[in-house]
């Protein structure tokens, strides 16, 4: 296995407790353990994280990149899912 065969890993970092892990970037490593170590050195040199996940890039299933994709269409015509859709008389409070 040469460097070229090292799998690609996606790195997710939790910046502090109470926040979700967010995608920080990607890196190559021969195994999960090295991926974690490399991720620490690459993405948390300035204490940017308290927790790291590494996920093999091949394990990610993605939707189509096309934002006009019919996949997202069901949500497009339902403004009544938003609170601003509703008209409330002035003066009504706590609503």
């Amino acid at each position: 296995m040469t460097n070229a065969d090292w799998p690609l890993w996606e790195v997710f970092v939790r910046s502090r407790r109470g926040l979700a892990h967010t995608h920080a970037g990607s890196l190559h490593a021969p195994d999960a353990e090295m991926a974690l170590r490399n991720a620490r050195d690459l993405y948390t040199r300035r204490s940017e994280g308290v927790s790291i996940w590494v996920v093999p890039s091949t394990a990610v299933t993605a939707s189509s990149p096309d934002e006009k994709d019919p996949f997202f269409e069901p949500a497009a015509d339902k403004p009544y899912r938003h609170p601003t859709f509703y008209e409330i008389p002035e003066g009504v409070r706590h609503l």
Partner: peptide, 17 residues
């Protein structure tokens, strides 16, 4: 170093991709 890391990963079967 790269070869050793790859050999270690192969031996321990941790490379998942």
């Amino acid at each position: 170093v790269r070869e050793a890391a790859a050999a270690y990963a192969a031996k321990h079967g941790k490379a998942t991709a």
